[in-house]
Design a protein around this nucleic acid. Structure first.
Lengths: 222, 222
DNA sequence: CAGATGCTTCGACTAAGGTCGAAGTATGAA
DNA sequence: TTCATACTTCGACCTTAGTCGAAGCATCTG
């Protein structure tokens, strides 16, 4: 009866509070140094080093060395997905009603999920793309290509990359799919460049400008 | 920077091998007794009892007592989602290439995900529903209602239930969304009743009959 | 070349928790 | 009632792993 891949190893890695804090911090999409992660996790540098080593060995994070700094980021979309899914359970079945503050509301409305847009705005975009016939399964239709080009996305460059263009990712607050993949990442970048949205440097929240919200609503009717 | 719900508690629960085996076994959708779970996990009854208690306290499983038996099942869709997502990471970043056998192929093609259809057949159905305009966001269109009624699903009964009708669930093998929710569950039940598909009693695999495969393909063109 | 900063390794301590034997409680069967 | 089965509780054992101090490299700065 025991079928499918071995999940205990991965879950145990995420199951330590210090490591979970690190991973949650990395969900902002930013690459953080080992010392920054230590501070996030509330442990000393030695302990953090050990944790980061385990996360790396487990394939959950990737490193990028720059001089004497070690920048750490999530390894791929899959990891982000797992973390989102876990947050869903933790928020729901979790500790008898997590009291939801204003900060929580901002996260539910729009946030960064590793490298793409999540929350209400994320699913709004996904649903809009699908309803408009721009996104069919995991491929972009002709109208979809036109739409994202219009927004200033360099599709050719994305197609050259090894990462898949469109992927689903499950939203913990909306419990619906939103768009991940290299296109999801590129779109969030464009929204920032266009001044439609800005990432809060201290959290995963994404704040939409009035202009951005209006443009967004007209593009992806809700 | 540490935002979002507390995921470590949940992940730690799944992180123990014995408990992970139990949860994986429960992904077949069947409710299992404590002794059966003990056997699945390869531990004694006492140990299993302790584990089940923790899973219950954590909100991951629900119990249903029947005489001297304690039937345990996954608490809800969210839990199934997390397990699927974890399998995705474990299969990918996981232990340097999990060798994929014939049994694995069957799982990838069609399997039970807690209570609904997953694998290639699962995403085929989801994509077919969306492409046909039957499913828009998380609501069923008029044509969608007609379609599922045609298949013999009692929509009124489902709507009376507290569980949401349509939900997304992320597929670990396809890395795409498939249909969960009470409708997802009902459809799988109907496919079995119609003789289109049968659940392997010893695994999560779902085997389609020739008739079923043909009907399925014509309904949800691929 | 110092001196400072960022990261890693080593070793020892400690706490947490998984494990099972033994015994206890509930339910069902004869 | 008596016995068997299913599950739970208790207690003891022991492995695992998270933690930090101390020291060691590596890299950048002055």
């Amino acid at each position: 009866m025991k079928d499918g891949p071995d999940i205990a190893r991965i879950a145990a890695l995420i199951g330590d509070p210090a490591r979970a804090n690190m991973l949650t911090a990395l969900m902002s999409g930013k690459a953080l140094t080992a010392t920054e992660l230590a501070r996030e996790a509330g442990v000393t540098a030695q302990t953090a080093s050990s944790h980061i080593g385990k996360l790396q060995a487990g394939g959950l994070v990737a490193e990028q060395r720059q001089g004497r700094h070690k920048y750490v980021s999530l390894a791929n979309d899959d990891v982000g997905r797992v973390l989102e899914a876990l947050m869903g359970v933790a928020a729901g079945a979790g500790h008898l009603r997590t009291r939801t503050g204003p900060r929580d509301d901002a996260l539910r409305h729009a946030r960064v999920c590793y490298n793409h847009l999540a929350g209400h705005r994320g699913t709004q975009m996904y649903d809009g793309l699908v309803a408009g016939g721009h996104l069919v399964g995991e491929t972009l239709s002709e109208s979809g290509e036109a739409l994202v080009r219009e927004l200033g996305v360099d599709l050719e460059a994305l197609r050259k990359g090894r990462a898949p263009l469109c992927r689903d990712c499950l939203d913990w607050s909306e419990r619906r799919a939103h768009l991940a993949g290299s296109l999801g990442r590129a779109l969030l970048t464009r929204f920032e460049a266009l001044g439609w949205a800005a990432c809060d440097p201290n959290s995963r929240a994404v704040r939409f400008s009035d202009k951005g919200a209006a443009a967004f609503d007209s593009l992806f009717a809700r």
